[in-house]
């Protein structure tokens, strides 16, 4: 019965993801995205990665999503936006992307089928934060540095891009 959480969370994640890409109202999509992230955190936990699960909740579902919420608030979306979204999501628009995504899904699933059966993972103990931290500040310290560089670059460029926005005005200095 230990599989139950995994199956549950997986189903929730899949359904919520589909809801995200089909919502016309941005806030709804955003909330579904939070659901996807939270359920993915559950999946991570079930896979024996509690550290990743916690980070997913705190950083993704917490920080990054708050960022999204702020932006959606600032965009001041209304009824007209929802109608326009509805208009943009005419059924004909979906045919091509759905075909491509379906093909990708089929190709990847075919690949997965060729993978030999794996050893049972539930017998193994979860990988805790300690071993991850030892790795991060041991052999992978360089990539930690790179990640910090990346974040700094993101910070600087976000600041630069948003520099001249004043309130909800035109943004022109």
């Amino acid at each position: 019965m230990s599989d139950l959480p995994f199956i549950l969370f997986s189903l929730v994640a899949a359904v919520a993801a589909i809801m995200v890409v089909t919502r016309a109202v941005a806030v709804h999509a955003l909330l579904y995205l939070v659901v996807v992230l939270l359920s993915l955190a559950g999946v991570f936990f079930a896979l024996g990665a509690p550290f990743a699960a916690m980070l997913e909740v705190i950083i993704y579902a917490g920080a990054v999503m708050v960022l999204f919420v702020f932006v959606v608030m600032m965009l001041n979306l209304g009824r007209s936006d929802r109608d326009r979204e509805r208009h943009w999501m005419a059924p004909a628009v979906w045919i091509g992307p759905a075909l491509l995504s379906g093909l990708l899904l089929i190709a990847l699933c075919t690949t997965l089928r060729t993978i030999p059966p794996t050893a049972a993972s539930d017998t193994m103990a979860p990988i805790g934060p300690q071993s991850v931290g030892l790795l991060l500040y041991g052999p992978y310290v360089l990539s930690v540095e790179l990640a910090s560089f990346l974040l700094l670059a993101g910070l600087v460029s976000a600041f630069h891009i948003g520099r001249n926005i004043r309130g909800t005005g035109t943004g022109e200095p």
Binding site: L100, L103, L104, A107, L108, T110, T111, T114
Partner: peptide, 8 residues
């Protein structure tokens, strides 16, 4: 997709 199809 094409690359994957060729690969698998």
């Amino acid at each position: 997709v094409v690359a994957l199809c060729l690969g698998v």
